[in-house]
Design a protein around this nucleic acid. Structure first.
Lengths: 228, 228
DNA sequence: CGACCATTTGATATGGATCAAGCGATGTGG
DNA sequence: CCACATCGCTTGATCCATATCAAATGGTCG
């Protein structure tokens, strides 16, 4: 439940239309999902919404980062996606969220009433289009993620690094907001395997790890080759 | 290329609005994706569209079945989905198809101009909604498919059987239109592993296999338990 | 400094892949 | 109508990539 989440501070935005891009991020595209939104803060590892919770809202990352996950009865966890500033999440078309969402690092999230968006979409064709396009991108990401099923551990990790670099708009160097466990659960590997492969890539001078959370891509060609 | 596909026979449908449900299937829902469609036939194992081909059309299965797949440089293949009568496929929001589509069994496919649908969506809110909903369902399927990454081979196969049973609207007994290799590539396993698990499930009286392509689900409870 | 948590490293186990036959159904040409 | 090739599937033997179990290291915070 959104309302129950601990450590959240609510600030109601101006009761007007919000451009989709947020201050200070320099995104060029202007979203037409112009709705009354509420910016909320979520502390590290707090739940934004739960699995199977009714999906009353859409969400847009203002700052920080988010993971979505689904857990089997015995505790095995699959991470569906990571979201970074500018990304919209939670727009599954169903009435319930199939995945839970949690803040990885302290995050500010723009929370948007689903009904407001669908109402806007009913009036404004451009909004409807945007809704479709966003869902389509999400589908494409999920389909790409599926390709992990045919890939080796090394290929998964190499692909992961390239994907994150692209998502955070870094070319060579970036911070990983998520833990090794998150990475493992995203890739369908164990934390030990992920760690060993990081070490291996460091040994082959493909990457450098000044700290365990800071990655330098030293040989993009090698990574791309591994990514198949 | 659609036009190059061998062994296709084209029949232009009445130049009018087509209800989304097709003859003899008894589907109750009536689609508003009412467009000029063209029914085409595709022989077993022929390509409907290729990977990276511009996405000019949407497709709806009238009869037969379809698989979508993506192949890595070295030949490893991932199957993205199987589609059965009534299913719509090819609606990735991008301008190109991320997966190829092939007929598994001889299939009749309703081919719908993408531009016709998007034009209709621009006029008719209901069509726009439907487009979004369909893409959303596709997303949900892909997300469910992703859960394979945390599952054992047995769980994958059990889940597969339950999924296909649901998709073909069978409770206990149905034909598998696809080969063991297709199943393996869908599940991220090898053909040998799939075969062994089928045999194992047969041995435990969970299923019966009167022929290799005909499945009888004898113990749904056991299958559901395996499916986690 | 000490406790805690994340990460790495090491040793061993194992599920599923790989390699290799065998088998049964279907189809073809003689 | 039958020998034989072909194809899809199953079964068997062995291997190996990754999981599991266990411990050490390092970084962070009170």
């Amino acid at each position: 439940m959104l309302q129950q989440t601990a450590q959240t501070s609510i600030r109601r935005s101006a009761n007007g239309y919000l451009a989709g891009h947020h201050a200070g991020e320099g995104h060029a595209e202007t979203s037409r999902i112009e709705v009354m939104g509420t910016a909320m803060s979520f502390a590290r590892n707090t739940e934004i919404y739960g699995e199977n919770e009714p999906a009353h809202y859409f969400y847009k990352v203002i700052s920080g980062s988010v993971r979505t996950s689904r857990i089997l009865a015995d505790g095995r966890r699959q991470i569906g996606a990571f979201y970074f500033p500018g990304d919209v999440f939670g727009l599954e078309a169903g009435t319930e969220h199939a995945f839970a969402a949690e803040a990885i690092a302290n995050a500010r999230i723009l929370v948007i009433r689903r009904s407001a968006v669908t109402a806007a979409a009913a009036r404004d064709v451009v909004v409807a289009q945007e809704l479709w396009t966003l869902t389509g991108s999400e589908l494409q990401r999920a389909q790409g993620h599926l390709m992990l099923l045919v890939k080796t551990a090394q290929e998964r990790v190499a692909g992961f690094l390239l994907e994150i670099a692209a998502r955070v708009k870094a070319t060579r160097e970036f911070d990983l907001p998520m833990s090794r466990q998150d990475i493992a659960d995203y890739l369908g590997l164990t934390i030990e395997t992920v760690s060993r492969i990081f070490t291996g890539l460091e040994g082959s001078a493909t990457i450098a790890l000044p700290t365990s959370r800071h990655v330098v891509l030293r040989d993009l060609g090698a990574l791309r080759t591994l990514n198949s």
